[in-house]
Amino acid sequence: MFTGIIETSGTIQQIAREGGNVHFTLNSAITHELKIDQSVAHNGVCLTVVAINNNSYTVTAIQETLDKTNLGQWKEGDIVNLERAMKLGDRLDGHIVQGHVDQTGVCKSVEEANGSWYFTFEYDTNANNITIEKGSVTVNGVSLTVVNSKDGEFSVAIIPYTYEHTNFKHIQPGSIVNLEFDVVGKYVARLHNLRK
């Protein structure tokens, strides 16, 4: 379980394929605090630490994860948002994030707004995911509040702190991002579709 409050970022050092799996080795300031078998959200994707070597650690993604996320497009040198799992009893500063990406979305536009930014994303509605005005959504692991919710599209407002401390500064029109929709909203949407 995660909160969507990004702790730090990591840099992809190496990508190695092994059958249908891909091993990603990253360098991060929190590597010395990690343990083997620990869950860490990478751009919102929960991955397990399988190896640690000095300031670098390795996680493995299976084919299903590669199919549902933007991990298959990662390149060496890319910057990734990182969050360790929350501790029981910690404050929940963002919202409940499972680390299970629902689908990807595409950045439609980035608009500067007097020191902040509005990012608009499009997504395929065939997966029956929804957003609501002022509801929560996770973009590349970042817990955000939805503005301008539409069918298959939503915007988020990014403050300077988030822009500087996450990989939002690298997102531009055409960028593919990981989306995890609000867990309560997913249950409501599922119930609604079952009653049709």
Results as ranks from 00 to 15, higher is better:
M1F: 06
T3A: 00
G4N: 00
I6K: 03
E7L: 06
T11D: 02
I12Y: 01
Q14R: 06
R17K: 11
G20K: 09
G20A: 10
N21M: 03
T25Q: 08
A29R: 05
A29H: 00
I30E: 02
H32A: 15
D37R: 04
D37F: 07
Q38C: 05
H42Q: 01
G44W: 00
T48Y: 06
N55I: 13
T58G: 07
L66C: 02
L66R: 01
N81V: 09
E83S: 09
L88D: 09
D93V: 03
H95W: 09
Q98G: 02
G99L: 00
D102S: 07
T104W: 10
T104G: 12
G105N: 13
K108H: 04
E111T: 15
Y118W: 07
E122H: 09
Y123L: 07
N128V: 01
I130S: 14
I130N: 11
N140H: 05
V142Q: 08
V146K: 02
V146A: 03
V146M: 06
V147T: 08
N148V: 05
S149R: 04
G152V: 03
F154L: 07
S155M: 08
Y161E: 12
T162I: 08
E164T: 12
K169E: 03
H170Y: 15
P173T: 09
G174V: 01
F181D: 12
V183K: 04
G185C: 07
A189P: 14
L194C: 05
K196Q: 13
